[in-house]
Nucleic acid binder design. Structure first.
Lengths: 193, 193, 193, 193
DNA sequence: CTCTAATCGAGACGGTACGTCGCGTCTTACG
DNA sequence: CGTAAGACGCGACGTACCGTCTCGATTAGAG
């Protein structure tokens, strides 16, 4: 085994190295898709030796996961409230604001080569959350509803981030509000109950 | 030059070889994502020599495009009528029927590793079609509307094809009918006129 | 078998084709070594189809042999008299004149990539001739004597042909006369008899 | 870059690998000419991976040069004294002895496929040495004299090494002594001065 | 404030896939 | 119906990147 303990980063050097790796990958993702990024490039960009990469991440995608994980957690936290009728609008504004504030990060994650992986992970977490909340006898299967909702959100955000002259947060929130259809599904389901 | 003339396949051998390549790739796509499929595998699967692959396609993705092109043409033809209010329902049924009849082909294209490429190409063609038909002063930017619509259709079909025990065509048509939101956009736009 | 009959050149087309091939190879040999010349180039240069080449010669080197054979025959004819003491000088002049008159041909054969093959063939024929004439109990083994003599002749001619401003035939004959040592061997041998 | 630094072989692994490559090539040269030896064969023979070959030598011929370089240096050192009238005989004996002692190595280099390359390199070094020592107004151009001398030595040694039952060193030295003609050229030149 | 252990740089190496090129055979389509 | 054109199998080429594996040399951080 090359990465014996994946030591939990108590050592200052480890922290530094991993941070450098994260930044290097994000930097590269702004310029080209994930598949075209080589571990050698990341290592070079981070100023570390090629073989050292593997002491921290078994794979290029593993590094991306490492980056994405925490970001996705926050995104999911911001997304869930959208389901609640009350705060719906406020929640959307919060979501868009958050993305907007970290524009370059999310641009890399959603419009770069990582988009596919991000969508996968979001879908996984969203499905877990949704299964508890959505009635199972709706006119649309829950699983499909989640897929479509996540897709629409991801695609919309990606489109937004890719604009040279992006719409303001409030405008974007309204559009998202009308594009997302899952809440109506939830209502239908609840009414059916 | 490796692919000298891309001779329009008058030679029987060429026809045979290309057909074998198409089938080989589709066969592999049922088992693993596009990125994990190697040209060597495709060639082996088609029973041709590795180097011969390049006499027909410069790239693995080029072969996929070759496969996808004609299929997408048909799909787009079936999708456009959905925009028209009148035949809407019939058009959806026709779409689902077509996909259902070629289940294994579309399963490979939409649920396999080719999904990303397919989505890209569909998006390109759909955008071309939509730009002529959709009003530009809708509450949602045309481009975004197309993206979301295509995404929803693709995701829905992919989900459908991936089911072990898939819903019947009629049922699927109804669900798609309610999931697709673009027609309402068109209405809004027309009402605005 | 691709070259079914190696048809003995009764057909006018065959004659034309083979002549074209010979000229094409010689033309190419002036510019680059044999190993860098491809059959495709020769065929293209001769204005015939690539596959047609193989109907006439099984191999690139076979074509060269074809060219070399007759030329070497003449060269050997001119070289043998050198061994005879009487005409020695005249024979050398004749040899050099002949080479000089066909300068571009022999330049291709002796200074180009064909040099090795030419040397081989000359050696073969020269050995055959020499074995009959040279005494076997000389201070130097016959075989070695032939090798050295042929080498010196070939190298000298090659050097001569490669000069930008070559020495005149008479001068060259004198130099060759003094460089060739085999006659003295023969003399020794004959004296020994 | 494939052969990054051509690191001067401080690493034990590098030393081992290169040694193995040298031996593998020499081994193969005993059986077939250089042109028929493939890099894959050499790598296999050396017990290293094919791609690793290129980490050490950019080309098959480069490996040969690597082998030949040092050997040729020694050979030239032994050959130069032959030019001096005094030690002439002793020098020839030394030369033949040296070759004889490394018979299998020199057999590979001179009678195998490497012969051409060896001749080239020997010629280059010999010319450099000779230009300083030989008078330029001899009856034979210096360059040509060197060519012929080197040719005779190489051909003679090659013939000797190829013999199943080779002549003894002393005998060989005598023959070489009489075959080499350059010393007389030198004498002539000096007398001309 | 050492000393000890983890981290890192350096890079050789076995692998696997890439795309290219040239050979020589064998099939096809065309005149 | 024979010959041209050229598709094809074959196999070597050189390249790139992967992930593994020693080595030493720093360099923390605990005693």
């Amino acid at each position: 085994m090359t990465t014996p303990e994946l030591s939990s980063a108590q050592d200052a050097r480890v922290v530094r190295t991993r941070q450098a790796l994260r930044e290097a990958l994000l930097g590269l993702l702004e310029h080209k898709p994930l598949e075209q990024i080589t571990i050698r490039e990341i290592a070079a960009g981070a100023g570390i030796h090629y073989a050292t990469f593997f002491r921290h991440h078994p794979t290029r995608d593993a590094l991306l996961d490492d980056i994405a994980a925490e970001q996705i957690d926050r995104l999911v936290e911001l997304t869930v409230p959208i389901l609640d009728r009350a705060d719906s609008e406020a929640a959307l504004v919060a979501l868009c604001s958050h993305v907007s504030e970290q524009r370059s990060l999310w641009t890399a994650l959603l419009t770069g080569g990582a988009a596919g992986a991000m969508r996968e992970e979001l879908l996984r977490q969203a499905t877990a959350v949704a299964l508890d909340r959505v009635a199972k006898d709706s006119w649309v299967p829950v699983e499909l509803a989640v897929i479509c909702t996540v897709s629409v959100i991801v695609e919309t955000l990606a489109w937004w981030l890719a604009q040279a002259d992006p719409l303001p947060v409030t405008e974007m929130s309204k559009i998202l509000d009308r594009l997302i259809i899952i809440r109506s599904l939830l209502q239908d389901a609840k009414q059916d109950e």
